[in-house]
């Protein structure tokens, strides 16, 4: 299992998560190289179809990262995102995919360290879960 290199997709909002990733860069905080970032203007943009498609394509794990709750650049987009993530987690369970493979995180645009910590934590979790059953279908 140790050679398993998961592919993880992180949908990151421009104002906080993407900015935090840049801060992690400028502080040179080192983190797991398995995460691939997809920038979206607001975590509220994410929709269930895009998440499910991402799993279908072969992602071992997906997370959506938005601003801190109450601090969304677009007011409430991140709250909607969380609801949708919860909803897709249910569907994943029904499909026989561990709902743990999908997560929602919140962080501020200044939290470079937190961004790295999330990437490490989630990568570790997916490594334990092993390859997605949909992978290489």
């Amino acid at each position: 299992m140790s050679d398993f290199k998961p592919k993880i997709v992180a949908f990151c909002c421009y104002y906080c998560a993407y900015a935090a990733a840049d801060v992690a860069g400028s502080l040179r905080v080192q983190y797991a190289p398995e995460v691939r970032l997809v920038e979206i203007p607001c975590s509220g943009r994410i929709d269930p179809v895009v998440i499910l498609k991402t799993f279908e394509e072969g992602a071992d794990g997906v997370y959506v990262a938005g601003c801190l709750e109450g601090d969304c650049h677009f007011l409430k987009g991140n709250i909607r995102a969380r609801q949708r993530v919860n909803y897709v987690q249910k569907i994943l369970g029904e499909l026989g995919i561990d709902p743990e493979r999908l997560a929602m995180y919140n962080l501020s645009g200044a939290q470079g360290g937190r961004f790295a910590q999330i990437a490490n934590e989630f990568t570790e979790k997916i490594k334990k879960l092993g390859p997605s059953p949909l992978r290489g279908r």
């Binding site: 929709d47 987009g77 949708r84």
Partner: peptide, 21 residues
């Protein structure tokens, strides 16, 4: 341009330009 509506539209009638599904 946040796309909250596009993410939620049940019939996918709304698209967020530049970030279409």
């Amino acid at each position: 341009g946040c796309g909250t509506c596009a993410g939620a539209c049940p019939n996918k009638a709304i698209t967020l330009e530049h970030y279409r599904s």
